[in-house]
C-alpha cells in the first residue's frame, strides 16, 4: 500500500482552506526587509499555514493563517515558501 502521492508545491499554489506544512523558505529570493518581515510573522520550517482569503483583483495578495496570526503577503513572496499540503 502506497501512501497517496503528495507533491511539494509553493505556497501561492495552495488552494484556499488547505492546510500545509512549511518545508523550506528561499530567503535569498527576498530582500532584507522582506525576509525580516516574514520571520516576524512567524514563517519558519515546520509551521502550519493555511491560505484564507485572496485579493479581489488578480487573486493577489493572499491572506494566510500562520500560527495564531493572519497575515497578508503578495503572491510573489508566497512563491518563496515551499509547502507540503496536509491531508484534511
Amino acid at each position: 500500500m502506497n501512501a497517496p502521492f503528495q507533491p511539494e508545491i509553493s505556497l501561492d499554489q495552495l488552494t484556499v482552506g488547505t492546510k500545509a506544512r512549511v518545508l523550506s523558505i528561499d530567503w535569498d529570493s527576498l530582500d532584507h526587509a522582506e525576509s525580516c518581515r516574514l520571520r516576524h510573522f512567524g514563517f519558519d520550517e515546520g509551521m502550519t499555514v493555511e491560505p484564507l482569503h485572496l485579493g479581489p483583483f488578480g487573486r493577489d495578495p493572499i491572506a494566510i493563517r500562520v500560527g495564531r496570526m493572519t497575515v497578508a503577503i503578495r503572491r510573489r513572496h508566497a512563491g518563496a515558501v515551499r509547502v507540503l499540503p496536509l491531508q484534511q
Binding site: R37, F41, V71, I73, R74
Partner: peptide, 8 residues
C-alpha cells in the same frame, strides 16, 4: 515595486 506584508 516593494512588497505588501501586513498583519490582519
Amino acid at each position: 515595486g516593494g512588497g505588501f506584508m501586513m498583519e490582519l
